[in-house]
């Protein structure tokens, strides 16, 4: 057996080396996603639309909040819905008066910038000032993917517990808006808003907090004022 390469042919030349070479790369692993995110960002800028990437766990009230916002903004708001299956959420938003396009991820646990890029082909944004991308219900996977949004908005609802912020630091270190939903349940639950907010501040010094109930409408006005300011700032 050849001692150099282990093959069975004795006494032959070895024009190849078995030396390991290290080649420097120095790239972001999500570079491809980020390129699409930059394209999306340029598109949003051209359209003059403020874009939110809405992330939370399943059942925290993302679609209920979108229904409340759709009642206010109507056709001035558009929604891209990311769900593993069904167009149920998009139907709810459309019934509430805004336009919506559903992405069915068919198993994927997050949206990426490429999926959003294609969804934009199906959504007419004329006259639209606010686009909310409702990500797949998940506090982990969506956080790493830039979709080209202006800000990430996270919802944490009272039944989930006030200890969730540090359990999902990748998300809460990146949020621009923290919504604490189902505040109408405060009398029945021992969720400490102070704990949640101060733990979020330990990861991130630049976010705003809104306490609201998407179901009763309490506090939704403050969020709308905040969104209006962000929309105006684009013009």
């Amino acid at each position: 057996m050849c001692n150099d390469c282990g093959c069975l042919e004795p006494g032959h030349d070895h024009p190849h080396s078995h030396e390991t070479t290290t080649l420097a790369v120095h790239q972001d692993v999500l570079a491809k996603n980020n390129t699409f995110a930059e394209r999306n960002r340029g598109f949003f800028k051209a359209k003059g639309v403020f874009v939110v990437n809405l992330i939370s766990s399943p059942g925290s009230g993302k679609t209920a909040l979108l229904e409340a916002l759709a009642h206010h903004y109507g056709p001035a708001m558009a929604v891209i819905e990311g769900d593993i299956q069904t167009s149920r959420d998009a139907d709810r938003v459309i019934r509430s008066g805004s336009r919506a396009y559903q992405i069915e991820t068919l198993g994927a646990c997050h949206l990426d910038a490429h999926a959003v890029h294609h969804a934009l082909d199906h959504l007419d944004l004329s006259g639209c000032r606010l686009l909310i991308i409702e990500n797949v219900g998940n506090l982990v996977c969506p956080s790493a993917y830039d979709l080209g949004e202006h800000e990430k908005m996270a919802i944490l609802s009272l039944p989930e517990g006030d200890d969730k912020i540090l359990k999902y630091p990748a998300l809460f270190s990146r949020v621009g808006t923290l919504i604490i939903n189902k505040i109408d349940l405060q009398p029945y639950l021992d969720f400490s808003v102070d704990t949640a907010v101060s733990e979020c501040r330990s990861l991130n010094r630049s976010f705003e907090t809104f306490l609201l109930s998407a179901r009763t409408g309490e506090g939704v006005d403050s969020l709308i004022r905040h969104l209006d300011l962000r929309i105006q700032a684009l013009r």
């Binding site: 390469c5 282990g6 093959c7 190849h16 080396s17 078995h18 030396e19 390991t20 070479t21 290290t22 080649l23 420097a24 790369v25 120095h26 790239q27 972001d28 692993v29 999500l30 790493a144 990748a170 270190s173 990146r174 101060s198 733990e199 501040r201 330990s202 990861l203 991130n204 010094r205």
Partner: peptide
């Protein structure tokens, strides 16, 4: 204290690759 500023930790990079010549067998 947990009152703090978090500065970094979000890095996820491909730094380098190791390669060798393809074997002939």
């Amino acid at each position: 204290s947990l009152e703090r500023i978090t500065y970094s930790g979000d890095r996820f990079t491909l730094d380098a690759i190791d390669v060798e010549d393809t074997h002939h067998v």
